[in-house]
Computed example of a mutant assay.
Amino acid sequence: MPFINVKQLSGRTDEQNAEISRELTATYARVTGVKPENIWVAIEEIPAKNWSAGGVTFAAKAELAAKAGEQGA
């Protein structure tokens, strides 16, 4: 039984997550021939304060971008 685990930043709607799940399932089924009902998808939403790249959290990056936008206005 295939298991697809998606990790993403928080903020998508329930409808978006449902569409992600449907599309991943459909694509995996089409490519592999596995029945859709046998494909599991888990979507984990991680707060921006708990996810980083280059040692900087995405929350901090958003804050810096907002400040830069304020200064450019």
Rank of each mutant, 00 (worst) to 15 (best):
G55C: 05
Q71M: 13
A60T: 14
E15W: 04
K35D: 15
A59G: 05
N5Y: 12
L24M: 13
Y28C: 06
V31D: 07
A53H: 10
Q8H: 07
N38L: 12
I39C: 08
N17P: 03
E23G: 03
E23F: 00
A29I: 06
A65M: 11
P47G: 04
W40V: 10
I4V: 14
I39N: 06
N38S: 13
G69H: 07
L24P: 09
Q16R: 02
N50R: 06
A59F: 00
A60H: 12
F58L: 07
Q71D: 12
K67C: 00
R12H: 12
R22Q: 15
M1A: 14
I43A: 00
R22T: 11
I4W: 05
T57M: 04
K49W: 05
P2Q: 07
P36T: 03
K67S: 14
E37S: 12
E70G: 06
E63R: 11
A60Y: 07
Q16F: 04
G69E: 15
A73C: 04
S10Y: 01
L64K: 13
S10V: 13
V41T: 09
A65P: 02
R12D: 04
K49C: 04
V6P: 04
K67F: 03
A26V: 01
F3D: 05
Q71H: 06
F58C: 06
R30H: 10
N38T: 08
I39L: 10
A65V: 09
A62R: 10
N5I: 12
A59R: 03
R12C: 06
I46M: 13
N38D: 14
G11R: 05
V34S: 14
E37P: 01
P2G: 10
N50D: 15
P47V: 04
L64S: 13
V34P: 07
A59V: 01
Q71K: 15
E44I: 00
T57R: 09
S10G: 04
E45C: 08
Q8A: 09
V31K: 05
K35M: 06
L9R: 10
K61H: 07
E70V: 06
I39W: 09
A68S: 08
R12I: 03
G55K: 00
N17D: 09
T13E: 07
A48N: 08
N50S: 15
A42M: 11
E70S: 12
A53G: 08
M1N: 11
I4M: 10
E19T: 14
I43N: 03
F3I: 14
R22E: 13
E63W: 01
W51C: 08
V56C: 00
A68P: 04
A42Y: 03
E70C: 02
